[in-house]
């Protein structure tokens, strides 16, 4: 395709992304390198209802405005925000390394740091949920594809339900169902023969619960993509495979799966990325005590009384970096495909 034609085709999409994603990412990157101005604190008297008057500290807004006019971005801090205790915590880790004697002890100390605690869950979640979603989605697609035509529409609709009900309420209802007194929680207690079993109280069970929910809610996505892909499997190839005496399994293994491989790459890409940014289930299931993720840390910085934009910006950049590292194998594969397609 000619450069000029390409440009015209790409223009609307490219412009939208440039304006609403590229620019903000640049500004976030710049923001992450700065910290706020030194706040001049003054002591004043505050009076509030019922409480009476007390000495309180406030920010000298005039001094703050003056500093802001001089340096609108704040104080340059380089990568200081990235390395501080609430992010990569390089100094703390070096300290733990010197003060601990065993790997277990070192690991426990590092796990106490918010970023690494979140990273541990994020990575576990990403690496378990992604393959489970792909496998489950593929199996559902095969099964639905084998249904008689009249049932397909209904099966597709029900399979899409986990994706359609908003996670906000979906997780609220599921959360209630798995409560130790809810319908699923009670059933589990009977199955496990443990009347005190509570999925919400134990960190391990909370992790499992979040991952099961993640698989459940993302499987429809993989299902739909695979299902659409299955419709386009070339029949001549299947036929010739049958004539060659390939069994059903062999046909799936050597014809269908290779044919769907680009879709697997695609789903893996999207799922790795989405799972690395896992957030909604944590809030929906009130799981903050046992499981936090990088996106949750950003949320925690941005929501509430005091918003730490610089800190959120640094975590966001680290998230992007993390996604880039995760995707490297997939990217290399795409690059090869790309080169292969060219030649």
């Amino acid at each position: 395709m000619k450069h000029k034609t390409f440009l015209w085709f790409m223009l609307p999409s490219g412009f939208a992304m440039l304006l609403f994603i590229a620019l903000p990412i640049m500004s976030v990157l710049v923001q992450s390198l700065y910290i706020e101005h030194e706040k001049v604190l003054i002591e004043v008297e505050n009076c509030v209802p019922l409480g009476g008057c007390t000495k309180e500290t406030v920010v000298d807004t005039e001094a703050a405005a003056r500093l802001k006019a001089e340096q609108p971005l704040g104080q340059f801090n380089g990568f200081g925000t990235y390395t501080n205790r609430n992010h990569l915590a390089t100094a703390e880790i070096a300290g733990f390394w010197r003060s601990t004697n065993s790997w277990a002890e070192f690991g426990k100390q590092v796990y106490g740091l918010p970023f690494y605690k979140a990273l541990a869950f994020t990575l576990t979640y990403t690496f378990l949920v992604t393959p489970m979603v792909i496998i489950l989605g593929f199996c559902i697609a095969l099964a639905v594809n084998a249904l008689p035509r009249m049932f397909k529409g209904l099966a597709i609709f029900f399979s899409l339900l986990p994706m359609m009900v908003t996670p906000l309420v979906g997780s609220l209802i599921l959360y209630w169902m798995i409560d130790s007194r809810g319908v699923l929680g009670q059933t589990l207690q009977v199955i496990m023969a443990d009347p005190d079993l509570s999925l919400r109280a134990s960190p391990v069970l909370t992790w499992i619960m979040l991952m099961v929910y993640g698989t459940w809610s993302s499987a429809p996505f993989a299902f739909v993509v695979f299902y659409a892909g299955l419709q386009t499997v070339p029949e001549d190839t299947l036929e010739s495979a049958m004539i060659d005496g390939a069994s059903r399994w062999e046909r799936v293994r050597y014809v269908v799966i290779p044919y769907l491989m680009p879709l697997v790459t695609f789903i893996a890409l999207i799922q790795l990325m989405d799972n690395f940014r896992v957030f909604e289930p944590i809030v929906g299931f009130s799981a903050e005590a046992s499981a936090t993720s990088l996106s949750w840390i950003i949320y925690n910085d941005l929501r509430g009384e005091f918003q730490l934009f610089g800190s959120a910006a640094a975590t966001s950049m680290l998230t992007i970096l993390g996604v880039a590292v995760l995707l490297t194998p997939v990217l290399i594969r795409t690059w090869r495909d790309f080169k292969g397609a060219k030649s």
């Binding site: 903000p24 976030v28 990325m273 957030f279 959120a312 966001s316 992007i320 996604v323 880039a324």
Partner: peptide, 9 residues
């Protein structure tokens, strides 16, 4: 990379 950016940020 664009897609990797968390929406809340």
């Amino acid at each position: 990379v664009f897609r990797a950016m968390p929406h809340i940020t």
